[in-house]
Structures are given as C-alpha cells and as structure tokens.
C-alpha cells in the first residue's frame, strides 16, 4: 500500500477527472432522454423505432467510438469531451427506453383528473406527470450512473485521464496496488453516486417511499379494505 500513499496526488487527480467526465454525461443523458421519451410516447411509430435504435446504440463498441468521435467533433483524441459525448450516447441508450416506460406508466386517470382540475398542458407535465414518473425515472437513472462511471475507465486506454488510467498503468507496470486502487475507487464512486441518486429520490419524492414519514394509523371509514 506504499504505492497509494506515495501517489495520493495522482489518485486524486484521476478521481476528479473521472468525476468530471461521468457527471456531465449522466446529467446530459437524463435531461435529453426526457424530451426524447416524451416525444416518442406521443408518436406511436417513433416509440418502437427509438427504443430499438437505443438498443443498437448501446451495442456500439466503446473503443472505436472514442476514436471516431474526435474525427466527427474535431476534438483531439485525448480530449475528455469525446468521452462525455460517447457516454451521453450510451446513457441515452439506457435512459430513453426507461424514461419512455416511466412516463407511460403514469396513470391516465390521474392525468385526466389533473386536466379536469384546470392544469394547463405544460404545468401538468412538470407538476404532475414528471413527479409521478419520478420513482421509475430514478430507477433508470441508477443504471445510467453505474454504467457511466464504469465506462469512463475505457478512456484510459487512449490516455484520457480517469481512474481507468490507474489500472491500465498498473497492468503495464505490474503494480498490483495501482490496479486495485483503480478498480476499488471506480466501484466505490459508482456506489456513492448511486446512493446519492437514491437519497435525492427519497427527498424529492417523499410520497413514493412505502412508509411515508408522516403516516399514522387512525380510525378509517368502514369497509375500507372491501373498497379496494
């Protein structure tokens, strides 16, 4: 473990670089997936096409994509921008189908009820449909988070700084501690971000957790069970 204490600066640097590539890709994938999913749901033919395309996108091997993207974007091959763009594409491939499902699963009766109360279309989307799709969106986002954090490491092969560099460098120079540090930190980062998403979801969607904090047992109308 002396390698770790001797290289804390490098480790911190690669960790920050890793986060700097993963976070924008996760956020972009999530934010872009929503309008795409919404549009796809509004047009039946588009939905089948898009979810199919999304699956194909995920099948693109990552290394060639990291090499082709600089040619298309005009960036240098070692630019973190390539990684962010590529990971956004992979994120979309995961997030569009799950966002589409999440929005479709919102009860039509509830949406109709909201319209009947006088929600304008946009207000209904932001204040009713989106929050109600929330729990399923969070579930989809968790997959994107973990997938993105692990995929960032591939950039290490090309020399783009990330935790991936640690285990690639470690393999080449046969330093076990460096390999382990890279792997453990990548996994730990994925778990940490995942936990943050879960926590954020709990705070933003208090009604969704089965045991809402303010629940109390109280006398109920007769025949309540029969009514369900």
């Amino acid at each position: 473990m002396s390698w770790v204490s001797a290289n804390l600066d490098t480790i911190a640097e690669q960790l920050l670089a890793h986060i700097a590539q993963a976070l924008p890709a996760i956020v972009l994938a999530f934010v872009l997936a929503l309008p795409i999913a919404k549009l796809a749901n509004a047009r039946g033919w588009l939905r089948g096409g898009l979810t199919g395309t999304a699956g194909l996108l995920y099948a693109i091997p990552s290394l060639p994509l990291f090499i082709v993207l600089p040619l298309m974007l005009g960036t240098s091959i070692r630019s973190p921008v390539n990684i962010v763009v590529a990971l956004t594409i992979y994120g979309l491939a995961l997030m569009v189908p799950s966002a589409s499902e999440a929005l479709r699963a919102v009860s039509r009766e509830t949406l109709q009820a909201a319209t009947a109360q006088g929600y304008a279309p946009w207000a209904r989307f932001w204040r009713v449909e989106l929050p109600l799709a929330g729990p399923a969106l969070v579930a989809g986002l968790r997959v994107v988070v973990v997938s993105t954090v692990s995929l960032v490491t591939v950039g290490g092969v090309l020399g783009v700084p990330s935790l991936g560099m640690l285990f690639i460098d470690g393999f080449q120079r046969n330093i076990t501690a460096e390999i382990l540090t890279g792997i453990v930190l990548t996994a730990a980062l994925a778990l940490l971000l995942d936990a943050l998403v879960v926590l954020g979801g709990r705070l933003a969607l208090p009604w969704a957790s089965g045991r809402a904090p303010r629940r109390r047992t109280a006398p109920r109308d007769t025949g309540q069970e029969a009514a369900r």
């Binding site: 009766e109 509830t110 109709q112 009820a113 909201a114 319209t115 009947a116 109360q117 006088g118 929600y119 304008a120 009713v128 929050p131 109600l132 929330g134 969607l205 009604w207 969704a208």
Partner: peptide, 19 residues
C-alpha cells in the same frame, strides 16, 4: 383551462394526485 378551474369536478376513484 380557465373553464375547468371554474367548474368543480369529482371523478370515480377520486382522481386525487398521489404525490
């Protein structure tokens, strides 16, 4: 939208906003 805000509406299974 304005019309619906001025007319009370009660539906089957209440149609409450679950969140």
């Amino acid at each position: 939208v304005a019309l619906r805000r001025s007319v009370g509406y009660v539906m089957q299974a209440s149609g409450l906003l679950p969140h």
